[in-house]
Design a protein around this nucleic acid. Sequence first.
DNA 1: ACTCAAGGCCAG
DNA 2: CTGGCCTTGAGT
Length: 482
Amino acid sequence: MDVVADSTTGTPPVFDHENLALQAQTNLLQLYLTHLASTMVPPMKIEMREPMTPSFSLSGSPNSETDDSLSAALVSSTKALFTLLGTNTTPDSTATAVSKSNNKICSVCGDKSTGLHYGASTCEGCKGFFKRSVQNKKVYHCSQENCCEIDKQNRNRCQSCRFRKCISKGMLTEAVREDRMPGGRNGNSIYSNYKQRRSIIRKTKDYIEEELEERRPFQSLPSGKKLIKELVEMDCLDRLINLRGLRINPSTNCDIAPACKRLTRIGDEIVEQLVEWTKTLPFFEELPVEAHTHLLTQRWAELVLLSAGYYACSVFTPDSPDTTEMIDETDEISFTNEQVNLRLLQNRLSLVLGKDIPFEHVSKEAGVLVHQFTLLLKSFSNLKVSPEAYVCIKAITLLHLSADSTLDKSIIDKVNTLQDHFVKTLQIHLHQPGEDQQTTSLAQILDWLPELRKASSVLLHSKMFYVPFLLCKNPRRLVFDE
DNA sequence: ACTCAAGGCCAG
DNA sequence: CTGGCCTTGAGT
């Protein structure tokens, strides 16, 4: 009955094999993210307001030659990534819509527009202001709260908010020439990349901007119900939960090999889903791709745990604190009892792998992880997080920078500003009346984040990325949508 | 030759 | 620093 135990060696071969493969998968993750950056970044040199460090050579993959097998795997999945990168753009409709709607009015201040300037239809004033700002590498600071309204009358009251609105309206710092050469036209590449990215999130952004044009606490990223609503709609938690690698083909008795192979592909799938999610974020275009790469690389494990945890809480409604009796019979994850979850993992792992896995092996390999995940579930379920709060927490988690971040300072400031914004948005949401006595405070949620971080390090250490998903969803019930 | 988006000039 | 007006020059 127990194939694994037949092995003469003391260590369980199944898990050893997996761990090796999954370790390679972690490296693959890095490569994917780097690859994402290289395909998103135009090959030209890009100068930001602050003197950019040459770290932009990230697209040039300065590292030494990668391992052959990893390269091969990378190449094989490149196609899928390219589809992720949004080739399904509608440049025509975008262009015409923009040119029509912005033909006469400056999109920044509402003054009379004199045409397209640096990517947006603006007046001479905003054009000149943007040019001087970029040329002189100006860094402005808002004396208020980054929420100044910019119109024709008061556009000179706050340079910081004016510049931010320029950016949010699509003006590109890259379009200001470093060599100051007059005349001619900028290469199409400057705008094509931007337009491609913008078209992906155009729907979201336009929607938000229509609703919140008047009162926006933050120019490029409006706060409010619409922002949260979009985030909730874009979240696609089901896609992350219904990982193909965890599905069971009911008709065929899976061999061990394909099952293992599928498990090792889960890293790919997670990256795919997270990249997809990142691209739908309203602030996607506000940050350079290397920033997204950096953030995803650092935070993906936390995002996985958060997503799985939220899914478990939303599906199983953790209102029964005493789950001691639901061992064996029930097929539900426990929020308190890690032994239940270990048993559950054993069952489901055996199911996916198509053979019995001894409990002690599961306990040995995933015990610490299950322990941490169960603790995390318990504390997370106490927060009673709403879908709206969940997407805010997710954004806050992604936008958490380590102290030793290697990003450019201007980017760090931007990321921090964005994170602050989502914290405020979350706070506003929590204070909203109508919810059934939201007792959870912002401080409670923020206090929980270190716990998430701690659990993520365990997840990274174990390399069994799929454990949270396997625990929170029965592989038998995974949706087959292909 | 015309267009249009980039840079420059300079009175306010 | 601002912004209206002028000059440039590749693309059409």
